[in-house]
Deep mutational scan, measured.
Amino acid sequence: SEEKKKAKERLERLGASSELARELLDRANGNAEKAERLLRKLL
């Protein structure tokens, strides 16, 4: 979806690899905010 694509791009801008961004979104069930929080914990 367009929303998921935007979320993935945002995670990548924050420093996630394409693969990591995809994994985070999967774990967050597509929830962009939750995926971002997970990423911030990792960085």
Rank of each mutant, 00 (worst) to 15 (best):
A28W: 05
R22Y: 09
R40F: 09
L11Q: 00
A16D: 01
A28K: 01
A35T: 01
K41N: 11
R22N: 12
R37I: 10
E23A: 14
D26H: 11
A16H: 02
S18G: 07
G15P: 01
L38N: 04
L25D: 00
K41L: 14
L39R: 02
S18N: 06
R37S: 11
D26Q: 13
S18H: 07
E12S: 05
E12N: 04
K41M: 14
L43W: 10
A35H: 00
K34L: 15
S18I: 06
E23W: 15
K6T: 10
E23C: 15
K6N: 10
K34Y: 15
R40K: 08
L14D: 01
A21L: 05
A16R: 02
E9S: 09
G30H: 05
L39H: 00
E23I: 15
K34N: 08
E33Y: 12
S17N: 06
L20S: 02
A16V: 06
A35E: 01
K34D: 14
R13G: 07
N31R: 03
E36Y: 08
L25M: 07
G15I: 03
A28N: 04
K34H: 13
R37F: 10
E19L: 08
R10Q: 06
E2R: 09
R27Q: 11
R27W: 14
L43C: 12
G15W: 04
G30C: 07
G30S: 03
R22W: 12
L39V: 00
A28Y: 11
A21H: 01
K34E: 15
R10M: 08
A21F: 05
G15D: 01
K4I: 14
E2C: 13
K5R: 13
K41D: 09
E3F: 08
R13Q: 11
L43P: 01
L24F: 03
E9D: 08
L39D: 00
A16S: 02
R13F: 11
E2Q: 11
R10H: 08
G15R: 03
S18Y: 05
R27S: 06
E33R: 14
R10D: 04
A7S: 07
K5I: 12
L11P: 00
K34W: 15
E3K: 10
G15F: 05
L24R: 00
A28I: 02
E23G: 04
L11Y: 02
A28V: 10
E33I: 10
K4R: 15
G30F: 07
L39F: 08
K5W: 09
S1F: 12
L14K: 03
S17P: 05
D26L: 14
G15Q: 01
L24H: 00
E9P: 04
E23H: 13
R22A: 14
L38C: 10
E3I: 09
R22T: 13
E2N: 11
S1H: 11
E33W: 13
L43N: 04
K4Y: 15
K4E: 14
L25Y: 05
L38Y: 07
A32F: 15
L14P: 00
E23P: 00
L11M: 04
E19T: 08
L25W: 05
A16F: 03
R40I: 10
D26I: 13
L20A: 02
E3M: 10
L25I: 06
K34I: 15
E23Y: 15
N29T: 03
E36D: 02
R10E: 04
A21N: 01
L11R: 01
A7E: 04
E23D: 09
E12G: 03
R13D: 06
R22G: 09
L20Q: 07
E12A: 06
G30V: 02
D26V: 11
E33H: 10
K4Q: 14
L38E: 08
K4N: 14
A32Q: 07
R37T: 08
R27L: 14
S18D: 08
K8T: 15
E23L: 15
R10K: 08
A21Q: 02
E19Q: 11
A7G: 07
L24V: 04
L25E: 01
K41F: 14
G30W: 14
L39P: 00
R37N: 09
L39C: 02
A16K: 02
K41G: 07
R10W: 12
E12P: 02
L43D: 02
R27P: 00
R40E: 08
N31I: 05
A32V: 15
L11C: 04
L42P: 01
S18T: 08
L11H: 01
R22Q: 15
G15V: 03
K34C: 14
R22V: 13
A35G: 01
R13Y: 09
E9W: 05
G15T: 02
E9V: 07
E19K: 11
